[in-house]
């Protein structure tokens, strides 16, 4: 990904002067967000058709978070997240065909159909999953960062978790050790305001989640997670903090999920008006599109072209995910031990 060059320019140029180059990548970021959006809509549709089973947690509404973060990352940086992971994998450059085929549980899926929506991995792309136990990825991510520090390889880990996950005890055990040992990790809290049906206010005694590292002396920032450029800026700073040996940092991304927690969701804990209002006023993709047009970085025809490209990728992924065969029955017994 071009993330590496973005990183270099950020290092070289002083803050203000980069505002032109700051916008330069916007068409690309817009396209990446749109790919996630369209991919997730299709996944939702395929779930509706019975092609995807079990849990399926869509990322619609939160696209700017992972795309902005990834735009600041460098080759070799690692990512780990929970079960709401499709967007993260696409942003890591993982094959949409392989992701969608995993959702349908087929042999062509990234985990050969054995992991499903919540469990995909890519050693090649430095994506360490895809975890179903809320909070587990925080300790695991801290361990990845431990390995980076151990090897002194300059890589940073980005561990993503939700507002709900941020109450798990192992998060704080990890925070303590990460700061104690100055581990290079960005804790990205995706605060979409709800954990299933529980709002942050109902679950957190101190709801400013970016301040959750204070008693360990871990700095934290609150970031508008609905604006991809703002996210990228915060990410550049955070990654720099880690790379310069200052230890962990917390980014609380204020974001929103439009869809239910998983596919089935009684939706009684919030009003449709609330969802509609966020969608109408803060949608990260609409915002990027408007920005692109206002700055004359693209015209309507250019947008149409991006639309077409993205749709073709998603259509191909959906086609692949349906035509790829089910895994061979012998796969039941493989990959248990090496």
């Amino acid at each position: 990904m071009a993330a590496a060059s973005a990183k270099k320019s950020a290092k070289a140029a002083p803050k203000k002067a980069q505002s032109k180059s700051r916008l330069q990548d916007l068409p690309k970021l817009y396209r990446e967000m749109l790919l996630i959006r369209r991919f997730e809509e299709r996944a939702g549709q395929m779930y509706g058709m019975g092609l995807i089973g079990g849990f399926c947690h869509l990322y619609i509404g939160q696209e700017a978070v992972v795309v902005g973060m990834q735009a600041a990352a460098r080759e070799g940086d690692q990512m780990i997240t929970g079960y709401r992971d499709h967007g993260h994998m696409l942003a890591m450059g993982m094959d949409p065909n392989g992701v969608m085929a995993e959702l349908t549980g087929r042999a062509g899926g990234l985990s050969k159909g054995k992991g499903g929506s919540m469990h995909m991995f890519s050693v090649e792309k430095n994506f360490y999953g895809g975890h179903g136990i809320v909070g587990a990825q925080v300790s695991l991510g801290t361990g990845l960062a431990f390995a980076n520090a151990y090897r002194n390889n300059g890589a940073v880990t980005m561990a993503y978790f939700g507002d709900g996950a941020s109450n798990q005890g192992q998060v704080y055990e990890s925070f303590n050790m990460a700061e104690l040992w100055r581990l290079p990790i960005v804790y990205v809290i995706e605060n979409n305001h709800y954990a299933m049906g529980t709002s942050v206010e109902r679950s957190s005694a101190m709801p400013d989640l970016h301040r959750r590292g204070e008693s360990f002396a871990i700095p934290g920032r609150k970031v508008d997670g609905m604006d991809v450029l703002t996210v990228r800026e915060a990410a550049l700073e955070a990654l720099e903090h880690c790379r310069s040996g200052k230890g962990p940092i917390i980014l609380e991304m204020m974001t929103y999920r439009y869809r239910g927690h998983s596919m089935s969701d009684p939706a009684k804990y919030r009003t449709t008006e609330e969802v509609k209002k966020v969608r109408a006023e803060q949608d990260p993709i609409d915002k990027a599109r408007a920005h692109l047009l206002a700055e004359n970085l693209i015209d309507e025809a250019g947008l149409k072209e991006i639309d077409r490209e993205v749709k073709a990728i998603v259509a191909e992924a959906a086609e692949f995910a349906q035509s790829s065969p089910e895994p061979d029955p012998a796969e039941l017994y493989t990959d248990i031990l090496r």
């Binding site: 549980g105 054995k114 029955p329």
Partner: peptide, 16 residues
């Protein structure tokens, strides 16, 4: 149940 972690794929889950 088979001596394996639970697979996701419909056919494998049935076998498990």
């Amino acid at each position: 149940g088979k001596d394996v972690p639970m697979p996701y794929a419909a056919n494998l889950e049935k076998l498990a």
